[in-house]
């Protein structure tokens, strides 16, 4: 198995896509080789916030190791719900910073390639040897191993409250589809979807996919931003939360961390959407659900 890098600098860094490419070898992707850490660290660029505490590498590495240890006997997917909020709280990034793919490239290749292999090594078919898809190391935010967790936490937290993130990550289909669609950029929509999962209205991966597809299609004619307005965006709590990183203790391992004290999504807006989504979900076909397979259609 791919191991912990044999060289870890003190600070996180940026790794350009092109530089990352040379390390995505077959050996790494099949979990047989390590990343040449010293060479890799020569090709990095420093973070813009290099001087701040949140640029320290150790806390992130420790978090990842704890995740692998805690879920060593479990399915690795179970670690997502644990790691996502804690990674988010440990890194304390702005969206502007998080949109830089080089940051995630470095995390995957320079800090924790062993985690990426542990979490994403999978066999495509029974005959083929298991392999990690290259885009788990270097790829769009919705597939990259760490970016997807961070964005899940960013889009599904309710201000300082990470609980919806845990629910959301419990369903891999949710994690895979929700980050691909723009509708989840509207916080009440994201939270109402989680609420339907909590209620058990949607349970299986197919149901989640059907729900997200129905929301995405209906959002072409319905402006959920108007039906269910969110609180006005305010950047100050986030800035204060990031500044507080200098004096913040390590991310709690047992309890959920506390996010930036942004205003929570208006309860009424979430309620309105919960009812509305339940209604459109009831009318949507779900693969494997009897009424869809019969193909009779008709009003539900």
């Amino acid at each position: 198995m791919t191991d912990k890098p044999n060289f870890l600098p003190e600070r996180l860094a940026l790794l350009a896509d092109l530089n990352a490419a040379q390390y995505l070898t077959d050996g790494l992707l099949s979990g047989k080789e390590d990343v040449p850490a010293i060479a890799l660290n020569k090709t990095t660029e420093p973070l813009p916030h290099d001087g701040e505490s949140r640029a320290e590498l150790d806390p992130v590495r420790a978090l990842v190791e704890d995740a692998m240890y805690q879920f060593r006997d479990d399915r690795p997917t179970a670690a997502d719900g644990w790691l996502a909020p804690r990674l988010h709280a440990a890194l304390r990034l702005t969206r502007r910073e998080a949109a830089d793919r080089r940051f995630w490239n470095y995390l995957a290749l320079g800090v924790a390639p062993d985690y990426v292999v542990w979490r994403h090594l999978a066999a495509k078919s029974e005959d083929a040897p298991p392999k990690v898809a290259a885009r788990r190391f270097r790829g769009p935010a919705y597939t990259q191993a760490f970016a997807r967790l961070w964005w899940a936490a960013e889009l599904f937290r309710d201000g300082p409250d990470y609980r919806p993130v845990v629910t959301m990550c419990a369903n891999q289909d949710m994690l895979n589809t929700a980050l691909r669609v723009d509708v989840m950029d509207h916080r009440p929509t994201a939270l109402a979807t989680v609420r339907l999962m909590e209620r058990g209205t949607v349970r299986t991966g197919r149901e989640v996919n059907a729900l997200v597809a129905a929301i995405n299609a209906s959002a072409a004619t319905l402006m959920y931003d108007v039906v269910a307005p969110d609180a006005a965006r305010d950047g100050k709590p986030l800035r204060e939360w990031i500044e507080a990183a200098e004096s913040a203790p390590a991310v709690p391992r047992r309890d959920l961390p506390v996010g930036p004290y942004e205003e929570k999504a208006p309860e009424q807006s979430v309620d309105v959407l919960v009812d509305h989504f339940a209604e459109i979900f009831a009318g949507a076909p779900v693969r494997g659900r009897p009424d869809a397979d019969e193909g009779t259609g008709g009003e539900v």
């Binding site: 969206r95 502007r96 910073e97 004619t221 402006m223």
Partner: peptide, 28 residues
């Protein structure tokens, strides 16, 4: 209002007219 920390490159801006039509609220 646009918060700088929320954006990286280019944000696009559009205007939408929304109304209740035939009893359905929030139609674009």
């Amino acid at each position: 209002d646009l918060w700088r920390a929320d954006h990286r490159d280019r944000a696009s801006m559009s205007v939408h007219v929304v109304a209740t039509v035939d009893g359905v609220a929030g139609r674009e």
